[in-house]
Each structure stands twice: as C-alpha cells, then as structure tokens.
Amino acid sequence: MTTPKPEPRKANRGPSAGPENRRALIVAAREVFGDGGYAAPLSSVAKLAGVGQGSLYRHFPDRLSLAVAVFDENIGELEAISNRADSTLDELLDAIIAQALVSTAMIDMITADLDDPRVQHLQTRIEDVVDAIVQRERAAHRIGDSVETADVLLAISMLAGVVARTPADRRGSVARRAWSLFHAAFAPSERGTRVPPTQ
C-alpha cells in the first residue's frame, strides 16, 4: 500500500507577496462583510484569503481600515457611473442594488464610525456622486425641483437595506417595487412636465 504524499506547502515569498495578499484580503472581506455584515469576524477574512492573522493586521491594523479599502472600490465604481455625462439615477441605483450586500455593511460602518475622518471622506464621496446625478436628473426634468441630494441618499440607504435582507431569488422584484415608489415620490409635480422613468 502506497502512503499518500503530503500536500506541498506554499512557499513563503516574503515581502513580494504583499500586494497579492492585500488584494486577496480585500476580495475576501467583500464576501465576508456581504454575508455577515460589518461586524463579521476578521478571522473569517484571513481564512478565506488564505493568509495568516498576522498578514491581515500588517495590511489592515483594524476593522475600519479593511472596510474602508473594500468600500473605496465600491464607491469608485459609482463614481465612474456619475462621471459619465449620460448616466441616470436609475443606472446608479442598479449599481447600488448589485452592490447591495456590501452596501449594507458600508451603511453600518458609516453609522458606527461616523466621526472617523476616513469614514467622513467616504461619505463625502458618496454625497458627491449622488449630487451630480441629482443635478443631471433635475436638469432633464426627470425628478422634481424640490428633490434634494439628501432625499436620494436616504432612498439609497433604505433600498440597499431592504435588498440586502431579501432572499436572493426575490431581490430583483423587491428592488423594482421599492424603486417604483421612489420614482413616484421624486417625479416632477408640475402638470405637463412629468417624464416617465428611464427604463
């Protein structure tokens, strides 16, 4: 009977593995925060990334620094949409729905660490994204003149929370239903100026 050979151990590549490990930790944290929320154990992140706890804390000394790295990428995707001259509020909401699980963890982080400058910076970026879209939608008469950026930010927070807590097979229909309510609330109220929602 042949004795099975042990699995070869990964070679320790030292500092050269730093960027790769950091990337693996961000990818793993996105999944862990999506499944377990902002309070999910960081040991799960290290395990999923295939690195030790020491490596995790070398790259991200605390929970917030890891979360900021994850959410920075999410906001970057939303900024790319906002920066396009033809982008719409519907398109932004579609992206937020696609990010819904991690978006909910981000909202939890902002609530828990609102006074931290890193969180304030992320929140400012989100506000800038939404404000640019609101100004564009208002100019195109797709939303009412009274609709403010704060109104849309509140709607996004509510929508992300609802979608994240809905079973995966029902998220699409629930998101469309919720967004139809916001469309009705945000639509121009003046007679003859109402424009149907962008499909």
Rank of each mutant, 00 (worst) to 15 (best):
A150W: 07
P167Y: 05
A139Q: 12
P196D: 05
H141T: 11
I156H: 01
A168H: 13
A150K: 11
A187Q: 14
R171G: 00
R171Y: 10
V147D: 00
R171N: 03
L159W: 01
T149Y: 02
A168G: 07
P196C: 02
A160H: 09
S146L: 12
E148H: 09
V163P: 02
L153N: 08
A175N: 00
V163A: 03
A178E: 06
R176I: 06
T166F: 05
A150G: 06
G161W: 01
R191H: 12
R138G: 09
R176A: 15
R170K: 14
G161I: 04
G144V: 08
G192L: 06
R142F: 06
A168Y: 11
S189L: 15
A155L: 05
L159G: 03
R170P: 07
G144R: 04
R191F: 12
I143Y: 04
G161K: 04
A164T: 02
D169F: 10
V174I: 13
V147Q: 00
F186G: 00
T193A: 11
I156N: 02
E190C: 07
V162K: 05
S157F: 04
P196L: 02
A187T: 13
A140P: 04
L153C: 07
G192K: 03
A187D: 13
P188G: 06
A150F: 08
I143G: 04
A168L: 15
G172K: 08
L153D: 05
T166M: 06
G144A: 10
S180A: 15
G172W: 09
V147I: 15
T149D: 00
E148I: 06
V195D: 04
P188V: 08
A160T: 05
R171P: 04
E190R: 14
P197K: 03
V195T: 15
G161Y: 08
D145R: 11
E190K: 10
L159F: 02
I156G: 05
V147H: 00
T193I: 08
A187N: 10
A164I: 02
D169P: 08
L153I: 07
A160F: 05
M158R: 13
L159I: 03
T166P: 01
R170F: 14
G144L: 02
A175T: 01
G192Q: 08
A155Q: 01
R142A: 04
G172D: 14
S146A: 15
T198N: 11
M158G: 12
G172Y: 11
M158Y: 12
R138H: 13
R191I: 14
L159Q: 12
P167W: 09
R176H: 06
V152G: 00
A164D: 05
G144P: 09
A187M: 08
T198S: 13
